[in-house]
Design a protein around this nucleic acid. Structure first.
Lengths: 338, 338
DNA sequence: TTGTAGGCGTTATCAG
DNA sequence: CTGATAACGCCTACAA
């Protein structure tokens, strides 16, 4: 059926091992032999079986991408495509395949640890930090198994993330520089690390410019449209309302916009709005949103490179990357009316 | 290092083959032995190597997902996540992994055919029709290799798609029913199959209701914001302008909205707008867009199921699914002002 | 420089 | 029911 290394060897009148060495371009084989064997391989349409190679080499030439497909509004969901693209752009040329693993419905027995790692289906793992808990990370460390986290983790691990704190500072500072005096912060759950980072940047910017922080202007809620809307409604009907808002997500911002429109509050004249993330809405709201763009492709590339270093043991030290976001200024923060 | 089947066999005082049979729950093994061996496997933390199993069984328990990651505005891009989720929901429980393969930068030698198929890295393939050309499909047929296309293909192949023609009819009819008399069609390239399907639905609806078709109201262009905008500007300044538009994509519609706003044309009062696709903008434009939603998860589920049938040879016949889209009525088609 | 033999961790086919 | 033994297709000493 399928042509194997033995077939080629027979046809070329050499030993299997010779063919194998040709395959791996061993320097111990004469050029003539290489030429000849390669010729025959081509003629016979020989393609080595990666399963057999994997078994012999004890490596699958595959990396696993852990995703929780249950979470619709997942970080990975939005940036999935770019991040994967970045990872692939470094793994692909090196001959590695990418395997997607949904960690959602697998119970203990069928856990990805068994399913992929101990299984030897993958040589390394990339996962975001909502999936790769610190407990799992410890286990991988114990097994000395290569992995990189997308999203901040505890110091022991290698991870790449974008600088949420800087992002919070940038959005807030931008509002202040535009002449807004009293920015609020809407969206996000207290216990989420990403929220606390973003909020912390907001607080830093306020303090650095000597403004006072008003706790009642920091609103925790789901980072979606509905909650953004509700939060904004409550906040904006008050006498002493903020003159601008930093929003956790595009959707939060959309909700805030809607509330402002209903209350007859003009954006940006009476309310400035700046939001995290550039996708999917910032360009398309009315008015368009000032927001933060992040180079998700680069996030993928870096995590891929580091994982490769890990796998090839060029570098097993834990590293971290904090990618600086880019401020995209649009109409929603054009400045308060005087 | 790693514990193998031999280790278990030794510890249990049985033959490797016995352990293997226990692993596969062969009926030829006594329950006592099964119990005992399983116990020991658990104690020793034995996990079978899927590579070895693959080699022995000549199957990788993996399916390949072909994607062209270069195309940013790719169909798959937008719906990627849901489709993959659907595929995984059927493959995962059956013990199959998903492997992503970027077909973009691989040249002839490094083609996915070699890289995945002939390689035996995957047991089957799912790809969308922009990636899986008919030429490739023929080759796979020749190899008798299981695959399913996401998106219409020639009759010989199995494919799932949503009914673009019906979609075109639904949007157009809806406009007419709302009282708009003269809908235009904006966006899409003549040579794209998806465009011709959608357009054809539009034409059908017009003819069925006895309206005349105006070729100059069918505008070909990139299906993005900019081109939607430009096309709409040209169309809407004319004396005999259409009173409504069917848009190829969300982005096209956004461009049209922008043009209308600039020209002072009210939506929906003076211009009705209906658009294909529900993501990412339809809910968030001003006014929100009437659009078509499709069950992308189901697209994934079906393609996964069919591929499994193919792999297991339950059913190798070629099948096709045309998923009916769902009309989501929103403000943008509320009806013309009288 | 090339060939021989054994191993990678399973499954499958027979005997017993 | 259980156990040898030979695949599966490739790699890697070590020997020639």
């Amino acid at each position: 059926m399928k042509v194997t290394i033995s077939d080629v060897a027979r046809a070329a009148n050499v030993a299997k091992s010779t063919v194998s060495k040709v395959l791996n371009d061993s320097p111990k084989i004469s050029n003539e032999t290489k030429q000849r064997v390669r010729e025959i391989m081509k003629q016979m349409n020989y393609i080595p079986s990666s399963i057999a190679t994997g078994l012999a080499r004890q490596s699958s030439q595959t990396v696993g991408l852990l995703v929780d497909m249950s979470k619709e509004s997942e970080f990975l969901n939005q940036f999935f495509y770019n991040i994967i693209g970045g990872i692939e752009s470094v793994m692909g040329p090196l001959g590695y395949e990418l395997t997607l693993c949904n960690i959602q419905h697998h119970d203990a027995e069928d856990h990805f640890l068994n399913r992929l790692v101990l299984n030897q289906r993958v040589d390394g793992i990339i996962a975001n930090n909502s999936v790769l808990t610190e407990e799992l990370a410890k286990e991988l460390d114990r097994l000395n198994f290569p992995y990189v986290s997308i999203g901040e983790m505890e110091p022991a691990a290698s991870w790449v993330d974008f600088d949420n704190e800087a992002g919070g500072r940038m959005l807030t500072r931008h509002l202040l520089e535009q002449g807004y005096c009293s920015p609020a912060f809407i969206g996000g759950q207290r216990n989420e690390r990403i929220f606390s980072r973003r909020l912390s940047g907001y607080l830093q910017a306020l303090k650095q410019s000597g403004r006072l922080v008003r706790q009642d202007w920091i609103v925790n809620s789901q980072a979606d449209e509905h909650e953004g809307y509700r939060s904004a409604l409550r906040l904006l009907v008050r006498e002493d309302r903020p003159d601008s808002v930093v929003c956790m997500t595009n959707y939060t911002a959309f909700g805030v916009l809607k509330a402002a429109r209903e209350l007859g509050i003009e954006v940006p004249g009476q309310l400035g709005i700046a939001a995290f993330d550039e996708y999917p809405l910032s360009r398309y709201t009315t008015p368009p949103l000032t927001s933060l763009n992040i180079d998700t492709f680069k996030l993928g590339v870096t995590s891929g490179q580091w994982l490769m270093d890990h796998i090839r043991e060029n570098c097993t030290a834990s590293r971290r990357l904090l990618l600086e976001p880019e401020l995209i200024v649009r109409e929603s923060t054009a400045g308060p009316a005087r």
